[in-house]
Nucleic acid binder design. Structure first.
Length: 420
RNA sequence: GUGAGCAUAGCUCAGUUGGUUAGAGCAUCUGGUUGUGGCCCAGAAGGUCGUGGGUUCGAUCCCCAUUGCUCACCCCA
């Protein structure tokens, strides 16, 4: 048997309503904040991600689905969306058409990691990017949108974490301070941490190794060394969140591994999923557009993992969706009436009803069972004495009542069903 | 990439200290109503016990390998 590739999965019909429900909420919230949808290709030139996300990151280093196509070009299945959106932003000179571009997206992403609860190789994200303004109100707006979406899905067990990485200059001088602090402890660090000491010293805060943690406990925090401008920016973000009633907590250890990040970074974690608890993450990236060849353009964005969110919803039973109902199921009582039943079904469908009928030539009992299984509100019985007299029977499945109609009076039948 | 656990019917799971025809619940189908669903009752169908090898008179059970799944680590959504 051929099976779906590791880390990918089928979303069967029974689960589609949940996805549609989530998507409707996502689109609704984004559109209230006046974000417009953008769709970019699922694969891009490998260079885009290597430069956009950063060569030193795990995503680029070991998780990308990269392959050479028939023309010899290196292609990569997108592991995240920001790089693609920024590429499109630059390619189409969107900054020339509008000073501020507020965009959102929803779609599949790909990373070759070992699957786990809330983690897949093909997974889905929705997210937003605001390109063209450094206003801290936009930083807060990202968090508010994410929070509102989670709230509308009924999620409770949430924690919003924010931090500020400041601007490059203050961060660089802080890095030196951190380096000086760590120098005497260097030999005690884990191999991985020693490597990070060179490549991205900030990520030493991410380490979960006990000894590393002990060393980092007393390390100077970036937030204590932020310059005036950065502090002011961060302060405004916090004020906006407070004013919008978003509970949050400052996490000085919340470091994202990308060099171009500036100012705000944030994450929303759920206590209702497994160890992969981050439902969304994002931050400001004022250097990325330039890095990818565009003009100097400030930007901020976030991405949220749909599988994780639905898992949290499932575990919290945060919402329920009513089963889809059929308006009408048509039952034929004897052979030879299939064509009439079929045409009747087509007619009612064209009038706007949801209609189905038996395609397996089953017994009346089996057809009735099927109607019941399909949650049909009504059954139209065709055949027998009534049909010989030119009549059909309409049965209300919730109370069992039956009404007789002339077989040609489809409008009366339609109205009778429509009423309910 | 590393580690641990699991693999029996469509689904959820029993089971055998190695012994004849491998079980249950749910779902499916048929009948109880020659033309009527849900509840109930009776019955049926459905399994190479993940795959390959070994030990044994005999393996679904023990051993080895392999594949897949799950969870965790790393990291991230």
């Amino acid at each position: 048997m051929i099976k779906a590739i590791t880390g990918t999965r089928d979303t069967l019909a029974a689960d589609i309503p949940k996805w549609n429900y989530l998507q409707a909420i996502v689109e609704s919230v984004f559109s209230k904040f006046n974000y417009k949808e953008i769709r970019t290709p699922i694969f891009e030139e490998t260079t885009l991600f290597a430069r956009g996300i950063g060569e030193a990151t795990d995503i680029v280093g070991k998780e990308m689905y990269t392959f050479v196509d028939r023309s010899g070009e290196s292609i990569t299945l997108r592991p995240e969306m920001t790089a693609g959106v920024v590429r499109a932003f630059i390619e189409h000179s969107l900054d020339k058409k509008q000073n501020l571009n507020k965009l959102f997206y929803i779609g599949p992403m790909f990373r070759q990691e070992r699957p786990q609860a809330g983690r897949f190789r093909q997974f889905h994200q929705f997210g937003a990017e605001a390109l063209g303004s450094n206003d801290p109100l936009l930083d807060a707006e990202m968090i508010i949108m994410a929070y509102d979406i989670f709230a509308r899905l009924g999620l409770k067990n949430l924690l919003v974490k924010i931090n500020s990485l400041g601007v490059t200059s203050s961060r660089e001088s802080y890095k030196n301070i951190l380096r000086n602090y760590l120098e005497p402890h260097f030999e005690k660090l884990t191999t991985e941490s020693k490597k990070r000491f060179e490549t991205n010293i900030l990520r030493l805060f991410d380490s979960k190794e006990e000894n590393d943690c002990k060393i980092m406990e007393n390390a100077p925090l970036l937030i204590e060394y932020l310059d005036e401008e950065s502090l002011e920016h961060f302060e405004k973000v916090k004020q906006a969140l407070l004013a919008s009633h978003i509970p949050f907590e400052i996490d000085a250890r919340l470091v994202r591994g990308l060099d171009y990040y500036t100012h705000t970074t944030f994450e929303v974690v759920s206590g209702s999923v497994g160890s992969q608890s981050a439902l969304c993450g994002g931050g400001r990236y004022n250097l990325l557009v330039k890095e990818l060849g565009g003009g100097e353009t400030p930007g901020i964005g976030f991405a949220a993992g749909i599988e994780r969110i639905l898992l949290a919803c499932e575990n919290e039973k945060s919402f329920s969706i009513e089963d889809e109902k059929l308006d009408l199921f048509i039952v034929t009582i004897e052979k030879g009436l299939e064509n009439f039943a079929y045409q009747t079904a087509v007619n009612f469908r064209r009038k706007g009803l949801t209609v189905d009928l038996d395609y397996l030539r089953r017994s009346v009992k089996a057809q009735m069972r099927e109607a019941n299984r399909m949650n049909s509100k009504y059954v139209l019985l065709i055949g027998g004495d009534e049909f010989a007299r030119g009549e059909v029977v309409l049965k209300n499945m919730s109370n069992g009542e039956q009404k007789i109609f002339s077989k040609n009076d489809s409008e009366e039948i339609f109205l009778s069903i429509k009423e309910n």
